[in-house]
């Protein structure tokens, strides 16, 4: 699915601004990545950094930071969690975030609260599809995928 050329995957969970996508894993962890919208807005990503495994990250303290075209900032964190691992491939070649945003996950985290509580604060499926398309329209975001 897509809107304005921005790819959307209905099976994933999202924050309310569609900055990040989240996927529930069988082992109780959550995988976090950037949406097509976020990688487009950011432009070519030159650095990505994830906090050390085992680090506790409360809401508002980022799991990861990125840098693109001189802008540095956090990948937002919407629930209390502990870092399980960062994606080494992405840390070594952050440009992958621009190429395959839904394959190039950034970090895997373990939520502090029960996973059902965490997911209840996120959006998914049809509701997410509408919200995602709405943000693309409202801010006139047209997605482009980066090359090396």
């Amino acid at each position: 699915m897509e809107s304005n050329g921005c790819e959307f995957r209905p099976e994933l969970y999202y924050d309310k601004e569609y900055q990040i996508w989240l996927r529930r894993e069988e082992d109780g962890t959550i995988t976090v990545g950037m949406t097509d919208i976020s990688q487009t807005i950011a432009g070519k990503i030159l650095h990505a950094r994830v906090r050390r495994p085992g680090t506790m990250r409360p809401v508002g303290k980022p799991v990861a930071t990125i840098e693109s075209g001189k802008w540095a900032g956090p990948i937002p964190n919407v629930f209390d969690c502990v870092i399980v691992e960062g994606n080494q491939q992405v840390l070594e070649d952050p440009n992958l975030l621009n190429i395959e945003p839904y394959e190039a996950w950034i970090a895997r985290v373990r939520p502090v609260a029960p996973i059902s509580d965490v997911l209840a604060g996120l959006v998914t499926g049809e509701q997410a599809a509408q919200g995602y398309a709405e943000r693309c329209r409202r801010e006139d975001i047209k997605c482009t995928r980066g090359i090396r």
């Binding site: 807005i41 950011a42 802008w71």
Partner: peptide, 9 residues
């Protein structure tokens, strides 16, 4: 009126 970071810079 744009979200594009490069354009803002």
């Amino acid at each position: 009126d744009t979200a594009d970071m490069l354009a803002i810079a």
